[in-house]
């Protein structure tokens, strides 16, 4: 009986220690699914980290340096930058702030980028309204990061 209690206590303690670590880890706040990384952008002034994703077509055209094409899709996902708990000297993405989407459609033989903004905790709060054209240009002009 004594041993049962002892083993039980040890197991509870071990479980508590394990939960303590895993319980603090954030869920993956953005599922990139079929989208791939184009590049990342850290904004030291705004204290944000962002990753720009694109669909296969967007990446192919970037790589081939082709002009925009119907059905290209871009998503710029921005998180608050926070210190990495496990390494002093490193910052990591924290709270998800917003997702900006640019979808290329064609209208009368011309490509038209459609910009949408989904905010959760906006870094743009003080700068609203957003200049859609400026943000679209910013997103579209990002160079592909070398990713062998």
């Amino acid at each position: 009986m004594k041993y049962t209690t002892l083993y039980g206590s040890i197991l509870l303690l071990a479980n508590a220690c394990t939960s303590n670590y895993t319980g603090h880890i954030r869920d993956l706040s953005f599922q990139n699914d079929s989208l791939r990384v184009i590049t990342m952008i850290v904004n030291e002034r705004a204290n944000t980290i962002a990753v720009l994703f694109g669909n296969k077509l967007a990446l192919q055209n970037k790589l081939a340096q082709k002009p925009r094409e119907n059905s290209e899709l871009y998503k710029l996902v921005t998180w608050r930058q926070q210190p990495n708990t496990f390494w002093y000297g490193s910052n990591i993405n924290g709270t998800l702030l917003c997702i900006e989407t640019v979808e290329i459609t064609s209208k009368e033989r011309q490509v038209v980028p459609n910009y949408t903004l989904e905010c959760f905790d906006s870094p743009f709060a003080e700068a609203l309204p957003i200049d859609n054209v400026e943000r679209t240009t910013f997103i579209m002009n990002q160079q592909l990061a070398v990713s062998p």
Binding site: L28, V37, I49, N91
Partner: peptide, 20 residues
């Protein structure tokens, strides 16, 4: 790996690198 889920993105001020 390029088709996998992005787990995190980090910026190191100790050695001047960024990582995905």
């Amino acid at each position: 790996y390029k088709t996998w889920q992005v787990m995190s993105a980090t910026s190191r001020f100790d050695n001047g690198t960024i990582r995905i």
